[in-house]
Design a protein around this nucleic acid. Sequence first.
DNA 1: CCCGCGATCATACCTACGTATGACGCGGTT
DNA 2: AACCGCGTCATACGTAGGTATGATCGCGGG
Lengths: 223, 223
Amino acid sequence: MTRPNQAQPPAQPSSALVIVVDDDEGIRASLDSLFRSVGLQTRLYGSPAELLAGSLPDGPGCIVLDVRLPGVSGLDLQSQFVRQGISYPIIFMTGHGDIPMSVRAMKAGAVDFLSKPFRDQDMLDAVTAALERDAQHRAEAAAKEDIRAQYETLTAREREVMGHVTAGLMNKQVAALIGLSEITVKIHRGNVMRKMGVRSLADLVRKAEALGVSQTRRTTDQT
Amino acid sequence: MTRPNQAQPPAQPSSALVIVVDDDEGIRASLDSLFRSVGLQTRLYGSPAELLAGSLPDGPGCIVLDVRLPGVSGLDLQSQFVRQGISYPIIFMTGHGDIPMSVRAMKAGAVDFLSKPFRDQDMLDAVTAALERDAQHRAEAAAKEDIRAQYETLTAREREVMGHVTAGLMNKQVAALIGLSEITVKIHRGNVMRKMGVRSLADLVRKAEALGVSQTRRTTDQT
DNA sequence: CCCGCGATCATACCTACGTATGACGCGGTT
DNA sequence: AACCGCGTCATACGTAGGTATGATCGCGGG
């Protein structure tokens, strides 16, 4: 079980990290000073290889990426991140971009796509938006991860019972469905409530929804 | 109460509508024949004014829009749609677009942004994606509207009780909270279950979540 | 003025839920 | 072999939920 990471206050901009990948050292330097001037931490890389060599930090942050890069292109790097589930929001910069390129990047989830030269303020606005998106994403992921950690302490039977209970079945129906006595279902149900850290069925249902583990998805609707 | 619009089968492409807005009659004509060739219905307009003059159809569909248009620009029209809650997915075309324009459009939710001239297949792919997005959106909106229609049949008291019950409170707690006897809460609760068309608390909780009407949002978590 | 509807509450009864106690079997670990 | 976690079940008791019957009250419309 991973450590519960409950309600952390939203990370202040001051603790956020901006990862810059650009092959032009001048750009790197000026972005570095731009970001530091507003209290952001930075990491500078000249190529995707450099970035991928080290381990990615796991704090809040975002990536500022040139599209044209030595080795892997920025867009390929983006797809790679998406495939690997790396969720840092990405801001693209380009000196020789075109519309299809920008559209592709935005479709793939980029926060912004800036043509060089850009105004400092545009970049800062984009980074602000990216950090907000990241904070939002992190909060959701952390909440979901806590729930999943609790779910993983359940035994197979308990998960089965949880699925049926949160689908709205009565104990006796669950019992008949999986061939148990009602009292056994009650015991599993009690264990589920305890392990999932809830005291009401309503809360259990919400956690089950977050996990997507409700079993019998039939329509109980009948006005 | 609006008519329940339960589970309609996903609209076939053949019944979907593509709304084309372009001031070039040649473009309109060729898009018209392109879309009709794959079984789509079309409506052609030379300007936003023409489009806004008539009433918008409410069937499934999408909009194909030139950015540069007489009167209101395509992007302004898009913002206008967003503000008015009009949810037709939009595909932009442009002959003289630039990157900021495309990025702005994509940020505002456009499905695609094609530079003229584009390949027919690219346009068809974009329309297919747009119609899928529309169908998805429609299904969700319809489901939510059904639930809201049921919710609107509830009296003020019943809604109040529903909020507390779906938050996980026991009947007696609800009673104490709003100054009623437990038996009265039970009656309201029974009415809620009947009017909302559910037979289990689990289903009620899910409908309440869809509506966002749970009251006491305190943390019951305590591992 | 009466009616209907919503809201309120009481009594009563049944069902469902939750848990404690105690028990047995099975499979894997020490 | 002894132990432990898991699963299974029974009995028993207390609490919570659900509904039916019947009653009172206030308010707005016919």
